[in-house]
Amino acid sequence: MELTVYLAGQIHDNWREKVKEIAKSKKLPLHFVSPQTHHDRSDDIGEAIIGKQPSNLYRDDAASSINNFRTQVLLSKSDIVIALFGESYKQWNTAMDASSAITLGKPTIIVRPESLIHPLKEISNKANVTVETIEQALEVIAYIYE
């Protein structure tokens, strides 16, 4: 049984590739989807589709509408959501994706370091599982196949 896993979280490093490598090494039958990870593509998509916008406000609004559409489709098709909260970047998109997943009733695993226990206590409480590493998140998923 192949499961689709939505990987929510910041796009500025290769954590998604690490998840895929670990899943492959464990021979887990998983298919991965995620937000647009090419930052410029994500920022430019509104103007690429709708056309030049009169200001940055409208440019961001057009891009966010299309990015939110993409996220909604991929989240709704996913079986599991892993939401990674790291220490290096603002986590607004991760929090939004995790909250949407929880609202949709998607089984959700929060990955967050010990330093973020307090600021993420409410969302961690709503998620199915909270762990500190991506390795632990994949162990949770591996348990499904035992």
Rank of each mutant, 00 (worst) to 15 (best):
E2N: 15
L3I: 06
L3K: 15
T4W: 05
V5H: 10
L7D: 07
A8V: 08
G9H: 07
I11G: 07
D13P: 06
D13S: 15
W15D: 06
R16W: 03
R16M: 13
K18A: 09
K20T: 05
E21W: 05
E21A: 15
I22S: 06
I22D: 06
K24T: 13
K26G: 05
K26I: 01
K27I: 04
L28R: 13
L30T: 13
H31T: 14
F32T: 08
S34D: 13
P35R: 15
P35V: 12
Q36W: 10
H38Y: 14
H38K: 15
H38A: 14
H38E: 15
H38D: 15
D40N: 09
D40E: 15
R41P: 04
R41T: 14
D43K: 14
D43M: 12
D44M: 10
D44Y: 09
D44W: 13
I45W: 04
G46M: 03
G46P: 05
E47N: 03
E47Q: 05
A48E: 07
I49K: 06
I49R: 04
G51H: 03
G51C: 01
Q53N: 00
Q53W: 01
P54M: 00
S55M: 00
S55G: 01
N56T: 01
L57V: 06
R59F: 00
D61K: 13
D61R: 11
A63M: 07
S65E: 05
N67W: 01
N68C: 04
F69D: 10
F69M: 06
R70C: 02
R70S: 12
T71Y: 03
L74Q: 09
S76R: 11
S76G: 02
K77A: 07
S78I: 01
I80V: 14
V81H: 03
I82M: 02
I82P: 10
I82Q: 05
I82H: 02
A83S: 02
F85S: 01
Y89R: 02
K90S: 01
T94M: 04
A95W: 12
M96T: 09
A98E: 06
I102F: 13
I102Q: 12
P107W: 08
T108W: 10
I109T: 08
I110G: 06
V111H: 08
R112S: 15
R112F: 03
I117A: 08
I117W: 04
H118Q: 05
L120N: 03
E122A: 02
E122D: 07
I123N: 06
I123Q: 01
S124E: 12
N125M: 04
K126D: 09
A127R: 06
T130R: 08
E132Y: 10
T133N: 11
I134Q: 10
Q136D: 15
Q136T: 07
L138H: 11
L138Y: 12
E139H: 05
E139M: 11
V140D: 03
I141Q: 13
I141K: 10
Y143P: 01
Y145R: 05
E146K: 14
